[in-house]
Design a binder for these strands. Structure first.
Length: 576
DNA sequence: CTAGGGTTAG
């Protein structure tokens, strides 16, 4: 009998090749549940491989071993393989083998995480049939399913009928009420719990944080009998959420032991308010950096239009002495950096070679990033190919395509895509309208643009200065300068330099001195670096033959950075 | 075994 020989093998760490041989052996000599279970627990590095082998084996076996299947299900559940876990359970069902309570609990967890209503209800029925109703774990898992499905009524019913409950059962119910927004019911459960653990406290604290009630959250945090990293991290993320970065930072500084998540939360917070220096400081302070931390920092750079730094950091993580494995998120972010730079070669290297080499498969996020890259770099056909490959076309994907068509001279297709999107009942957002207006601006379709701009409020969208800027550009190109000026004056918010800049540019192509001076005045007031605007105004002067004024303006920009326009006292504006 | 915190694309 060769089984003893295998069991001795198991206590050593095996190479992938040895494992494959072992698998062949198991296939030939039949399946032994004990061995499989032992394999999964004793070989953490290869447990995924083993679990997959097991899946295969079960598929071909008509008498699968319940215990080994359960081990595999638990493994998959722990590592996010909920589909695999569920299909293993279905496999057991199909071969008519009675599952264990463990298998049922795992399968229920998988259904909860997948939002698989049908599966959850099916297993609920089986729980009765197998007489697993008295099992706390099974019933708690059942509560978990209904909580995750948002069905608090059924969850409550299951909970009420339980003969025995533990902390987790209570916590699940409380979590469910918090998720469904019933803060008061959650409080009732929190106060009614026979005993609370850290999770109970943490859940309640983050419940208050979600509703923005920082006072109650803080009070509860201070009352906690014991705090763990999650408690601290929740507070940090709460303060980040409401923009109180300094308070978030003081919690970060005073927590006894920080982890990667604490750091990522802070970096994301700094990223949101544009403080990349502080973000980088925290990043550098971390001793051990994983790919999630790298992702956060790289994202911070791309979100703040620093694609070069983003790529530098990506390069750093690939260095042999660092050797941090990137994942899909890393690549999606890095590709976004490439499209900001217009670097098609690096981006497509990732797509065509690197992904293959690393065994990273495409998902819709990644695909959308690539669509944007190819579209921005002029390869609109390639972008379309990728667009058709998407499993689910969402706003972001449509927006990328619309903008891509717009900047590649395919305005009609951009409009068609927008209509198609409407028909699919996908709600456009602010970025979508920027893309559409950009497309329209290239063909000078003024009435269409007005229509588009005005339709924004139908979707509950308030145009941003950028949208006004695009409208000004469109009107300006059509020579409707006065109309553009009036549009700016009608803006409910302070226009930024770009809005007036768009008008100034239009004035320069149409040689309108009077309006040009007004626009330039605002530009000078709103932006630190005015040399570009100054030159535009000088061009207008030159265009109408006011050579002296043009010359003087150019000279003043060049020499002292002092913008002084003849005959206009409001131009006495000093710049550094 | 069951529950809790962070990061991706326009």
């Amino acid at each position: 009998m060769l089984v003893p020989k295998i069991t001795t093998l198991l206590n050593r760490s095996l190479t992938a090749k040895q494992l494959k041989q072992l698998h062949g052996f198991i296939l030939v000599h039949g399946l032994d549940g004990l061995i499989i279970r032992h394999l999964i627990t004793s070989q953490p590095n290869y447990s995924q491989t083993i679990a997959h082998y097991l899946q295969l084996i079960l598929h071909h076996s008509n008498q699968p071993d319940v215990d080994s299947a359960t081990s595999a299900m638990r493994y998959f559940c722990k590592h996010g393989g909920f589909h695999e876990a569920f299909s293993l359970y279905v496999g057991l069902q199909r071969s008519g083998v009675s599952p264990s309570t463990f298998a049922v609990a795992s399968a229920l967890k998988a259904c909860a995480r997948l939002g698989n209503r049908k599966g959850g209800i099916m297993i609920h029925g089986q729980v009765h049939r197998y007489g697993f109703c008295g099992d706390v774990y099974v019933e708690t898992a059942l509560v978990g399913v209904y909580v995750k499905l948002g069905d608090m009524e059924t969850a409550r019913k299951v909970f009420d009928e339980m003969s025995e409950r533990n902390v987790v059962s209570w916590n699940s119910m409380m979590d469910g009420y918090l998720r469904s927004g019933s803060l008061s019911m959650a409080e009732v459960f929190f106060n009614g719990m026979p005993d609370k653990d850290v999770v109970s406290w943490n859940s309640m604290v983050s419940g208050y944080l979600r509703t923005g009630d920082m006072e109650k959250a803080l009070r509860l945090f201070q009352e906690m009998p014991e705090r763990n990293q999650t408690s601290w991290n929740a507070m940090i993320s709460g303060y980040v959420e409401c923009g109180k970065l300094d308070l978030a930072r003081s919690f970060y500084n005073s927590m006894p032991q920080r982890n990667t998540i604490s750091c990522i939360t802070m970096i994301a917070g700094y990223s949101k308010c544009g403080d990349i220096v502080s973000a980088r400081e925290l990043f550098d302070e971390m001793g051990k950096k994983d790919h999630l931390l790298y992702n956060a920092m790289i994202t911070c750079y791309t979100k703040n239009s620093r694609p070069k730094e983003a790529l530098q950091l990506f390069d750093e993580m690939l260095q042999p002495n660092v050797n941090v494995q990137p994942d899909k998120m890393t690549l999606a972010t890095v590709i976004s950096a490439c499209s900001q730079l217009g670097d098609l070669s690096f981006g497509s290297w990732i797509y065509k070679l690197y992904m293959n080499q690393m065994g990273i498969t495409m998902d819709d996020h990644l695909c959308t990033a690539l669509i944007d890259l190819y579209a921005k770099c002029g390869s609109i056909d390639e972008a379309f190919k990728l667009f058709h490959k998407l499993h689910k076309k969402d706003v972001v994907a449509y927006t990328a395509m619309i903008l891509g068509c717009g900047i590649n001279g395919k305005e009609q297709i951009a409009i068609k895509l927008f209509d198609e999107m409407m028909e699919s009942k996908i709600r456009p957002n602010l970025v979508t309208f920027s893309g559409l207006l950009t497309a329209l601006s290239h063909v000078g379709m003024v009435e269409e643009s007005y229509h588009c701009f005005n339709s924004m409020k139908r979707y509950g969208l308030v145009p941003t200065p950028d949208h006004y800027s695009l409208m000004v550009e469109i009107l300006g190109r059509a020579g409707r300068l006065e109309e553009a000026h009036n549009l700016i004056k009608s803006m409910p918010m302070q226009p930024h330099g770009g809005v007036w800049g768009a008008l100034l540019l239009a004035c320069s192509t149409h040689n309108d001195v009077e309006l040009g001076e007004i626009a330039a005045k605002h530009c000078f007031e709103l932006e630190a670096d005015c040399s570009g605007y100054g030159s535009l105004l000088a061009n207008i002067y030159a265009g109408v033959g006011r050579w002296e004024d043009a010359k003087r303006l150019r000279k003043s920009i060049h020499e002292k950075g002092l913008v002084k326009v003849p005959g206009s006292s409001w131009m006495d504006h000093v710049h550094e």
